[in-house]
Structures are given as structure tokens and as C-alpha cells.
Design a protein around this nucleic acid. Structure first.
Lengths: 154, 154
DNA sequence: CTTGAGCTTGTACCTGGGTATAAGCCTTAA
DNA sequence: TTAAGGCTTATACCCAGGTACAAGCTCAAG
């Protein structure tokens, strides 16, 4: 009985998530413990670690938990379901490609701004701040639930 | 008195956002109307359109509204604030670069999966589904507030 | 055997970024 | 002039994806 079994805390730590998150994923149907002890402790194995890492990776990649669940739930011998997975992959690939293009564009823009920022030590800093100047509002302590700590230098 | 002024609905429509979102941005200090009518109607101009589009673009690029607010609030003639902006840009550039690399990796992985999906019309579909098989949980109608409609084919 | 860390379930709350609704005033076209 | 639609404020709610806390059970080290 080699100790391949992990308890929830060990699994969580191994994957850099909280134990509560792991239980959440289970409730959402994403990751089931491989067993439970007689006292109800969840037990996981090395494949669970892989699976959880996959979940986090997929999540970072723009899949929602619901989509990940759909992927994980696909009945492998169901042609139609398999087709649905393919369709999902295609959609995600497309979205990912678009996003890559957009982010690359933004990166270029930011890079340009950053350069401009360095280039001119005059009174007016980056070009794009011209955009803001007539538009930025006061921090409005009234309804501003957010932005509370942004410029706390009064 | 050329009609350069827009009312909130016109601005919103021009930028593909809701009027409520525009008011939200105002409360958060991101976008102030250039004027108000005697009856309290918000008025905007062409630069507001640019600004709002900038906000949306920055948002899509991974800036939070809070960060956008910080950018917009920077006092242009304050050296320190300007430095803060530079730092923010640097951080975002870095994050963006990392994210680009990660997404590209994911894209490659998905692409591979998609190929595998097509390649083998056997009983076992994409390789990565092996990950799931021992782990995917039942849809657990108990606590599952999400995933409610995922596989409604019982 | 006790004590503290770790596990259980359950419920409540949080954050970001909104949307929905209400109650009422304004504007405009018919 | 009146009715529709747009605007105002204010408050409530929604969603995803968690976190926090409570009350109680369990395990392991000293």
C-alpha cells in the first residue's frame, strides 16, 4: 500500500489552489476524489494532480469551469458528444487566435507608449494621456465603491 | 453651435456599451461628461468617444477598471506619478508577454488535441480525455449552482 | 491523552463588472 | 397635447469564481 493517496490539502498544495477551491470544483462536477476514507476524508492520486493542473491550465486559457466540465463529461464513445468537443476546441482555438492578435497589438501600443514616456522629459508625458485629460473624473467618494485606495495620497 | 455633443445613449451606442456602464465608469472616476444641460443631462463629445473606446480596449487588454482609473488620474506634471505610470506600463507589458507565451502554448496544445481528435475515429477520442475519465464527477444536482444546463440530455 | 492541525458540511460573504428595475422628469414627433 | 422614448437617481440583483467562518469530527505527535 504505497502512499500514492493524497488528502485534499496535499492535493491543493501540490497544485497551488485552496482546498476550498478543490471542493468547489467537485461540487461543479470537475474533479471527483478517487476514494473516501471510512471517515469521509477525500482521497486523491497522482492523476488527480494532473487533472487539477489541467483544470487550472484550461482556466487560464480562457475556458470557463462550465466548459471544462463539459469537456470532462464528454462520453468518449458518443460520436455526437465527441463532435461537440471538437466544436468547442475549434471555437476556443479561434477565440484564442483572435485574442493573441489583439494582445499582441496592445503590447505594441503599450511598448510605444512606454518609449514615448521615456523619450520626452517634458511637462506632457505619454501621448495617450491626452485622451484622458478632459475626461478623467474626480475620485467621487460618493458612489465609488471601487477605486477606494487608488490615490490615497490625498 | 454645431451638434458635436452626444447624449449618454448616443455615446454608449457609438462605443457598443450600455448607458448604465457609462454611468458606472463615471462613478468610478473614468469618464466625466464634458458638460451637463440645465436639466442634468450628461453631454459628451468626440473625444469622449475616443476615451470610452480606449477604456474598453484597455479593459480587453487586461487592465482592470481600477488600473485604467489610475492611469487616467495621473497628474501629468507630477514626476512621481509619471514614474508610477511607467511602472504600471512595465508591469502590464511583462504580464502581457507572459500571457502571450502561455496562450501560444495552450493554442499549440489545443491544436494538437484537435488534430488527434480528427485522426483517430476509434472508441477513445482525444488523448487528454484520459485525464478526466477517472475523475469527472456526476453532475451532482445537489450543490451544483453552476453547470445546470451543461448536459441536459440526462 | 491532550492539543493542534487538518478534515467534514454548510452557509455567508466578497470582488469585478456589470444588468435590472423603480419612480420620476424631459423631449420630441404626431 | 399627449404618448413614447430617453434621461435622471437610487437600489437591488446577477454571474463567475472563489474565500471566510462556524461547528464539529479525526488524526498524529509529544
Amino acid at each position: 500500500m504505497s502512499q500514492t493517496h493524497l488528502k485534499i490539502g496535499e492535493l491543493a498544495k501540490a497544485c497551488g489552489v485552496s482546498d476550498q477551491a478543490v471542493r468547489l470544483y467537485e461540487r461543479l462536477g470537475l474533479l471527483k476524489p478517487v476514494a473516501k476514507t471510512s471517515k469521509g476524508y477525500r482521497l486523491y492520486d497522482a492523476a488527480s494532480v494532473e487533472a487539477l493542473r489541467f483544470i487550472k491550465q484550461a482556466q487560464r486559457s480562457g475556458f470557463t469551469l462550465e466548459e471544462i466540465g463539459a469537456l470532462l463529461h464528454t462520453d468518449i464513445r458518443d460520436e455526437g458528444a465527441c463532435a461537440a468537443v471538437k466544436a468547442l476546441l475549434d471555437r476556443k482555438l479561434y477565440a484564442l487566435t483572435e485574442r493573441l492578435v489583439e494582445l499582441q497589438g496592445v503590447k505594441d501600443v503599450l511598448h510605444g507608449l512606454r518609449q514615448a514616456c521615456d523619450g520626452e522629459p517634458g511637462p506632457v508625458c505619454p501621448a495617450f494621456l491626452r485622451l484622458c485629460t478632459p475626461h478623467c473624473a474626480v475620485p467621487d467618494p460618493n458612489g465609488a465603491r471601487l477605486l477606494h485606495e487608488v490615490n490615497h495620497e490625498d
